[in-house]
Amino acid sequence: MSITLYHYLILAAILFCIGIYGILTSKHAVRVLMSIEIAFAGVSINLVAFSNYITPGTLAGQIFTLFIMTVSAAEAGVALAIIFNIYKNFRTVDIDKIDLMKR
């Protein structure tokens, strides 16, 4: 059975769902970020596969993926800085403990 577009789409869906699951079930702030990166990887595979099979030769999906990479790098940098501040202020990175404002 040769590899078709569907194989890549299913792989992308699996990665995306793993990412969402990770975001929902992680307590460590850094692990949440990792899960987000995994979800973005799923989206990227989706886009590259579409670019390969739906619009061969135009590379629109690949360009989109490059921009997603840029944004995720920028986001990771900012997130790192915010997590440092969290750690400095709370001495913990447990998302459940960082909850001063519940009502």
């Binding site: 992308a12 995306f16 990412g19 969402i20 975001i23 702030a29 949440v32 970020l33 987000i36 979800a39 973005f40 799923g42 989206v43 989706n46 886009l47 579409f50 999906g61 989109f64 997603i68 986001e75 900012v78 997130a79 915010i82 997590i83 501040n85 969290i86 400095k88 202020n89 709370f90 998302i95 960082i98 909850d99 001063l100 404002m101």
Partner: peptide, 23 residues
């Protein structure tokens, strides 16, 4: 700091959803 982290997590989650929809 807490508000920054919360906004970050929710924002990233919803941007992942947005991107999947776009793809």
């Amino acid at each position: 700091s807490e508000s920054g982290l919360k906004y970050l997590v929710v924002g990233s989650l919803s941007s992942a959803l947005l991107l999947y929809g776009f793809s």
